[in-house]
Computed example of a mutant assay.
Amino acid sequence: MALHLSHLPSPRVPRNLRSMRHHSPDTTRSRSHTASPPFASVSASSSSSSSSPSVILWDVLDTLVYDPFYQHMPAFFDMTFDELMACKHPTAWLDFERGVLDENQFAESFFKDGQTVDMQALKAHMNEQYRWIEGMDQLVGDVSASGNVQQHLLSNYPTWYEMIESKLALEKTHGLQWTFVSTRTGFRKPEAGAYEYALDALGCDASQVIFVDDRKANVEAAEQLGMRGVHFEDATSARAAIKSHGVDV
């Protein structure tokens, strides 16, 4: 039976645990098999090198929105995190995030031993936990109000991103477009393809893009391609870092 732990504090997860969800094997989908997302690319004038960026790419989970994977998913199964990691299928979640598995296939392959999962109950439990990281709704709102920078989401997540949007309205309220979520592109950070796909679609130079993520490895991968990296820790430091890159917030 699911345990509802919304009253508990939400400490940041140690890196050795966080890597278990975010570790990414070689991609199984080529860029030629993914369609370009429908949005206006950055204009030629703004894509040239200048002092101010034209795009912010935001990570979502544990950057904008609390990630319930580490505490609340194990609690749903009445397990510890380590117990869940030991019995779940080693690649099912990653394949679900890439869009290789649909939700029904994910449910069937979640556990190594093939035991069934009440997917609707699990989704409801996860959805209950989604919430803004403190101060981040204000920050992205201020960026949007500045009117000078496009904001897109570059996230490793399955189709459940639609639950986040339905609950928190990242796109509807703040214009944060779910353009580069992995289930749509087939690429997961820190694969170079995740960032290259975004740059191709945006039509701008990497130096015109700020990339914000709570995982240092993802930030470093973006920086290797020429993006301006911001390692997220909290809203206050993120605001200062973005402002230092020339965004008026």
Rank of each mutant, 00 (worst) to 15 (best):
L8T: 10
P9W: 02
P11H: 03
R12T: 13
R12P: 11
P14Y: 06
N16H: 15
L17F: 12
S19V: 15
M20Y: 08
S32N: 12
H33F: 10
T34L: 01
T34E: 00
P37D: 11
P37N: 07
P38G: 02
F39Y: 12
S43E: 08
S45K: 12
S47M: 05
S50W: 10
S50H: 13
S51Q: 08
S51W: 06
S54Y: 00
L57K: 00
V60K: 03
T63L: 09
T63F: 08
L64D: 02
L64M: 08
V65H: 06
V65A: 07
Y66L: 13
D67V: 02
F69K: 01
F69I: 11
D78L: 13
F81Q: 06
D82G: 12
K88A: 12
H89K: 04
A92W: 03
N104F: 02
F106V: 02
A107M: 10
F110H: 04
Q115A: 13
M119R: 08
Q120G: 07
Q120L: 12
K123E: 11
A124Y: 01
W132L: 03
D137K: 14
V140P: 00
A145E: 09
A145C: 04
G147S: 01
V149D: 05
Q151E: 05
Q151T: 13
H152I: 06
L153G: 08
Y157W: 15
Y157Q: 14
P158G: 15
T159H: 09
E162C: 04
M163V: 06
I164L: 11
E165W: 03
K167L: 01
L168E: 01
L168H: 03
K172C: 03
L176Y: 02
Q177L: 15
G186F: 08
K189S: 05
A194R: 05
E196V: 11
Y197C: 09
D200I: 08
A201E: 11
D205Q: 14
S207N: 15
Q208E: 14
Q208M: 14
D213C: 02
D213Q: 03
K216R: 15
A217W: 05
N218W: 03
V219D: 09
L225S: 09
L225E: 01
M227P: 03
G229L: 02
G229N: 05
H231R: 06
T236L: 13
S237H: 04
R239H: 04
R239K: 14
I242Q: 01
I242Y: 00
K243E: 14
S244L: 10
H245N: 11
D248H: 10
